[in-house]
């Protein structure tokens, strides 16, 4: 699993690769929170294009960051989720809170 972090103006883009389970969830949460606070970032994009598996530990990171970002009136997006990840995101209801798009480009065009 590797995670790439990229800041574009006041938006943090998190590109995740591999399996999003408890092994990386805690580290990822700490790293995102640190970056959100240090750089006064408002918006967050989770790029899950290369994620092949997600369980409730991974969903916990996403929903927790959604609460954080929303608390400062920021916006959050999920991009590129494919099955089986997309199915789990729908099953958990996260898609009703966090808008999902097929690529990062789609958000830039908004």
């Amino acid at each position: 699993m590797d995670v790439e972090y990229k800041t574009v103006r006041n938006t943090l883009v998190v590109r995740v690769k591999g399996e999003l389970d408890m092994l990386i969830a805690d580290k990822m949460r700490q790293e995102i929170d640190r970056r959100l606070e240090e750089n006064s970032i408002k918006n967050l994009i989770f790029n899950l294009e290369k994620v092949t598996f997600i369980d409730s530990s991974g969903l916990g990171v996403i929903i927790g960051r959604y609460k954080k970002v929303s608390a400062v009136s920021g916006r959050m997006f999920i991009v590129g989720a494919k099955n089986p990840v997309e199915k789990i995101l729908h099953f958990s209801g996260i898609n009703r809170l966090v808008p999902m798009y097929s690529s990062e480009q789609d958000i830039i065009n908004l």
């Binding site: 389970d21 408890m22 598996f53 369980d55 409730s56 530990s57 099955n83 089986p84 789990i88």
Partner: peptide, 19 residues
Amino acid sequence: DDIEEIKLVVSEAVSNCII
């Protein structure tokens, strides 16, 4: 799809044990 669901179930059960 079945296999993915079983993998998720195992992941949840084992994560519960650890956490």
